[in-house]
Write a protein that binds this DNA or RNA. Structure first.
Lengths: 395, 395
DNA sequence: CGGACTTTCCCCACTCACAGAACAAAGCCG
DNA sequence: CGGCTTTGTTCTGTGAGTGGGGAAAGTCCG
């Protein structure tokens, strides 16, 4: 029993990627797409069948001649995704085509430390395994809410993950599952998710801004994640908006996150509730003794003017930072994602307004700014995309 | 007589790049570097000699055996660089190794329009040609002070270049010189210059910030220029620093360029001179009726406190924007270049201070911020690097 | 000065990847 | 049923590239 089969050359790799992204195809169609002679193609496909990665899937309807033999990725292929958030864990299992077969999610504080959180993640995977979803795991992708040394597969100097610094995440999970594992920043894997199944499918250079507990940005250059020289690229939460803004946890003042991170939004909402400017928020305060970012979202969705106003102000700040990034990076698309983004057409309108006003026409002329449509699945799909790109490439 | 010889395959391309960047080498050394068998290597080198791109250069000293036959790029190879600035033209001719053989520079207002400026550039090239430097031109690189559609070789919507919008620069110069021509933003070619011969030689991801008439940024990702989806990447001059800053030519307020572009610096210097806060600047005002950015530079170099203060304030603004870009991009190096940068250790100190304070430790932990050492040659060397990368690649 | 050793260059045969032709199989249409 | 089309399979030719075996041209040492 081979541990994990990998393609032997670039042709096989391209075939796997095609079967993953385009679905089952006839040999003739595949030959067309990879520009290989039929003979060579048959050779490589036979090898892939031998490796257990591909299998025949019957005959297609005739198109005027002999019926073509369709091939597909082996339906027994499985990829696993762990999306570790600041306050939650998502675990999912997909087939070779990255279609989600099972997905569980539960609240979990990342501050419990790496061993405890990873063990809980594996327990959640165990649940899915009991459903019979896991004949064989071919790879696992992991997203964590902080900077990562991608090459080593370990978090480095993560601000909100005490007890994770340089913890060998890849090695630990790899030992447990016995398959290739890759670890990346959670925002990066969300960007990969959008690249695979979201609005960014045909966009080479784009940004994904995630607004949640923290604020981060996934950067895609030429169809691949850009991570910077030390894995810290996209850390936009502490970009300065103003000198005389609120004090941030990082020690500076006026950081974007201090204006509009999850904690900042809760802080402002609390002030609004106490001042009596919002009936809905005051009600929440009375009921639970606290007001959260989710409460603001709910209140805004219900049309509460003060809540909408909080979101618009935050959107304004995000837009100011994003306008600078758009000027600098000239992306082909900007996607807003994360908890706060879930509801926000008010947010989106404000962000758009500021970016379209403050960035050069050349950069905004053909720039869609949209909300993510993928929600929670962006992260897990991106994680499996990350690992499948790796497993489907020659060793 | 072939027009312009190009390598026929990737092996030949790699050999040319090696001979360009590493200098003349023996066949044995080249074989080592490109991992080719001696037989194949001899074949490809012979083809390059036939194409006139490479020629034998005698025998090296023996290292204990038969003396090795050294090959080098043909010394008759010539690349031409046109670096069109906002207020100047630089024209240079290099050999195949991008060593500058002749370089002329003269003031010229880009606002004279494309035909006039390009004609003047060709006249300057004529001067160099008269010196016998141009047996045959193998390619020309052009830098212009504005956004460029790199694929088409034309400026697009340039703010400071009236009469250049969509002017077919590449076609015009190509027709005149009868060789391949590439056109790019002037900041991008400066970045390429630093990549080739400056401090960025071994850095894959870095930023070059040019502070001159305008403020722009060259972005290098993975050893190549990143241009964005519409060629507008790096346009950081209009990133917002503050809401209540000076009015900018772009119509917004508080743009970086409105704080510290060439015009802004002259404006502030004039105010200082009129207010009598600087003896040196007041003297210049009296003598010439005006004060320029160059006057501030000279005064600061002479130790004038008010001039130094102007530069430090500007550096502070640049640092604030740069801190954001460093957080976002996590580069391995930042180079400050351009007219204002020429003198500025005060400037550099201020930029560093702000960036190191405001960007995350992970991004600044190992981040040199330096002044360009190449000066005017960065642009012309970068332009020839641009075109030689093209000419030295298979058609 | 001559022989042992080294390094480089050149020629040749062998391997390998791949394309393309030829052939076989399996369908459509009239 | 026979021509036509599409697909899959087998076979052979071709060009790229490797590696071995001299030959050439040095150095070093006795």
């Amino acid at each position: 029993m081979r541990m994990t089969a990998r393609p032997e050359n670039l042709h096989q790799s391209r075939l796997l990627h095609l079967l993953r992204d385009e679905g089952p195809r006839s040999r003739a169609e595949l030959g067309e797409m990879v520009r290989l002679s039929r003979s060579k193609l048959a050779l490589e496909l036979d090898r892939l069948v031998e490796l257990g990665l591909v299998e025949p899937a019957g005959l297609a309807a005739s198109r005027g001649g002999r019926r073509s033999a369709v091939v597909r990725l082996s339906p027994r292929l499985r990829f696993v995704a762990f999306d570790i958030g600041a306050t939650s864990i998502d675990v999912a299992v997909t087939n070779g085509r990255l279609e989600v077969l099972g997905h569980v999610s539960e609240p979990c504080d990342v501050r419990l430390g790496a061993p405890a959180v990873l063990e809980r993640a594996l327990e959640l995977l165990g649940k899915l395994r009991d459903d019979g979803l896991l004949p064989q795991v071919h790879g696992a992708g992991i997203g964590v809410p902080g900077p990562v040394s991608f090459r080593e597969g370990i978090p480095v100097a993560p601000p909100i993950m005490p007890g994770w610094d340089r913890f060998p995440v890849r090695e630990a999970i790899g030992r447990e599952l016995g398959c290739p594992v890759l670890v990346d920043n959670d925002v990066n894997i969300m960007a990969l998710g959008e690249l695979h199944g979201g609005m960014a499918r045909s966009v080479d250079d784009f940004l994904l801004v995630k607004i949640g507990t923290g604020i981060g940005c996934g950067i895609v250059v030429g169809g691949g994640i850009y991570r910077g020289v030390s894995g810290g690229a996209g850390d936009i939460g502490h970009i300065r908006v103003d000198d005389d803004g609120p004090l941030c946890a990082c020690g500076n003042t006026g950081c974007l996150e201090a204006y509009f991170g999850g904690a900042a939004l809760a802080r402002d909402a609390l002030a609004v509730a106490r001042a009596g400017h919002s009936a809905l928020l005051a009600e929440r305060l009375a009921a639970t003794g606290d007001v959260t970012a989710a409460d603001v979202a709910a209140a805004a969705a219900a049309g509460d003017p003060a809540a909408v106003r909080l979101i618009r102000e935050g959107g304004h700040r995000v837009g100011q930072v994003l306008a600078g990034l758009v000027s600098f990076f000239n992306p082909g698309l900007v996607i807003i994602a994360g908890g706060v983004a879930r509801l926000g057409h008010a947010l989106l309108a404000e962000v758009r307004s500021v970016v379209y006003r403050r960035s050069p026409p050349l950069a905004t002329g053909n720039l869609p700014i949209v909300l993510s449509e993928l929600g929670d699945t962006a992260g897990v799909v991106g994680a499996t995309r990350l690992i499948s790109d790796h497993v489907f490439s020659p060793a």
